[in-house]
């Protein structure tokens, strides 16, 4: 079998620890979503609190998209696009998530009060 030097054990143990560590960094429940940002085409985004119950009508490229906010979650309920991918993707509540309707050029970003991290470098 493989000849193991001390450094090999070190690398092996460290790397086997790194696997769960890297998953936990990414998979952790994200920080609580505090707001959503709705962006239409190239316009600057509009921010809404997620702690409310409301329906928002957004005029996109093709027509009106309807966005519903309820119980700290957000979804598309109506959209003029043909694929309806945005509606079918359902409710979203995790910060960092995005719902994008490409045909109508409407996108929703779920924001947290604090960003967890921008990047990880090794």
């Amino acid at each position: 079998m493989i000849e193991m030097k001390p450094g090999d054990w070190l690398v092996l143990i460290f790397s086997l620890l790194l696997i769960p560590l890297s998953w936990s960094l990414i998979d952790h429940p994200s920080a609580e979503t505090s707001a959503i940002e709705i962006t239409v085409a190239d316009a600057s985004p509009t921010t809404y609190s997620i702690k409310q119950q409301t329906q928002i009508n957004v005029a996109g490229e093709l027509g009106h998209s309807v966005i519903e906010i309820r119980d700290g979650k957000v979804r598309f309920t109506n959209s003029p696009c043909s694929g309806k991918v945005c509606i079918l993707s359902g409710w979203h509540q995790h910060s960092g998530d995005h719902i994008v309707c490409l045909p109508n050029r409407v996108s929703i970003s779920l924001l947290a009060e604090q960003d967890r991290f921008d990047g990880i470098n090794f």
Binding site: M4, K5, G7, D8, V11, L12, S15
Partner: peptide
């Protein structure tokens, strides 16, 4: 690992480190 620290690290250590460096 191989040229500088060969005394301490062998094939396994080099292979894992190279694999991780590669993907990162």
């Amino acid at each position: 690992l191989w040229t500088v620290m060969r005394r301490w690290v062998g094939l396994l250590g080099v292979s894992i480190t190279a694999g991780v460096s590669h993907v990162m």
